[in-house]
Amino acid sequence: MTQTKSTPGGRGTLYKGREGMWSWVGHRITGVGIFFFLLVHVLDTSLVRVSPEAYNAVIGAYKHPIMILGEIGLVGAIVFHAFNGLRIILVDFWKQGTRYHRQMLWAVLILWLVTMVAFSVRHLMIFFEGWEGF
């Protein structure tokens, strides 16, 4: 899987510092971020069991302009983790997976960009349509 034999004047290793490592780093960081959001999200949703007022007050925070940007960041993390996760499944289970793992990372990044442009435009449009100001 990894090869640590260094080539003279070459890049050193096949893994460290290259696409495989960076996709792994990205997967970890987005995963941890999503996990902590998930804890908060279950707690805020649980407020429906406390009272409608409590739930509406807290969920209202998600409609603040700063949180709108936060939601784009969150969805960005989720979409990368999702697409890169599917790439990992293909690396593990598809016969040609290890051969094309780098090309698949580029596909992940292109699909991520397309998805995020579409999501951000739609999310911001909806936000500005219904926004009542500060």
């Binding site: 949703t45 429906v48 409608p52 739930y55 509406n56 969920i59 998600y62 409609k63 709108i68 939601e71 969805v75 999501f119 739609r122 999310h123 909806i126 936000f127 219904g130």
Partner: peptide
Amino acid sequence: LMVGDGIHQIDFAFVA
């Protein structure tokens, strides 16, 4: 988030 009123629609009645 993507259909209806998106983020604005989310309140107690929406979850209910």
